[in-house]
Design a protein around this nucleic acid. Sequence first.
DNA 1: TATTGTTATACTCTATAACTATA
DNA 2: TATAGTTATAGAGTATAACAATA
Lengths: 147, 147
Amino acid sequence: MTNDVGHDIANALGILLRRTARAKLHKELTQGMGEGVDELTYPVLSALARTGPRSAADLAPDVGLDRSGVTRRASRLEVAGLVRREPDPADRRAHLLVLTEQGELAVAELRTRLADRIMASLSSWPPGEAEAFARHLRRFTVEGPFA
Amino acid sequence: MTNDVGHDIANALGILLRRTARAKLHKELTQGMGEGVDELTYPVLSALARTGPRSAADLAPDVGLDRSGVTRRASRLEVAGLVRREPDPADRRAHLLVLTEQGELAVAELRTRLADRIMASLSSWPPGEAEAFARHLRRFTVEGPFA
DNA sequence: TATTGTTATACTCTATAACTATA
DNA sequence: TATAGTTATAGAGTATAACAATA
């Protein structure tokens, strides 16, 4: 394994981590999804769908914000009817953020949109390579230079 | 190729594109590199190293900013002695941003740091898989849901 | 005493809009 | 007329610091 591999991945990573890559993708995905859903609230919806009801403080590291930031975005989702706040039965200081039925539908649509876009770009890949890439990418996100 | 692959990659991508992933990596890479080098100026240095001397307007899309943003960051790099401005012989309106010797050294160090971190996380991968991943990742950045 | 959600404040960074010089 | 670099301005979004309520 030569050191070129490190540089190759570094270069590709540079494109992926470009400031605009994230913003652009999320903006396109959330286009026309209604007032509450945009590139800022998308990660909150996504995290809630992945892990189930959570408190703002609990959700914060997943979204990459502190709890005040989560509160702010969750409030916008609440106004739009995609999220509701429930008292946490286990801790009366906390409130759980819960996806409403409308919220679940929105997330399902967003996930489908993203998966479709990804699959479209992989359609011309040789058989088996997309699966291998998915496996490698998952491992890289877990073990890679981010932890 | 089932649709699960799309969802698998979508999930992994979600981690990679996390707001903090980029900031954290660039911050760590630029730590202790001197006053001019941080997570904001890093992409400018990197782009200049990759493509050679460019004007601010030319560089803007690569960095993901408009020309005023590039000017601002380039000025910080100029003060730090990593970049200099040269009149563009082909167009007297433009100035070329050029890496100084010190700038070249900084970029080399940054690239080495990043490649080393990546290679370290791949060291336990089975033979050949890292190379395959590098190839797939490059193709994905070119054909993927970003263009 | 520590932690919850929330709000107000200060700060950072960006795009937009100007300006001058040159194509 | 359009585009270059630059600067000033306004806007968006964040972390920090406070607050009251609960652990």
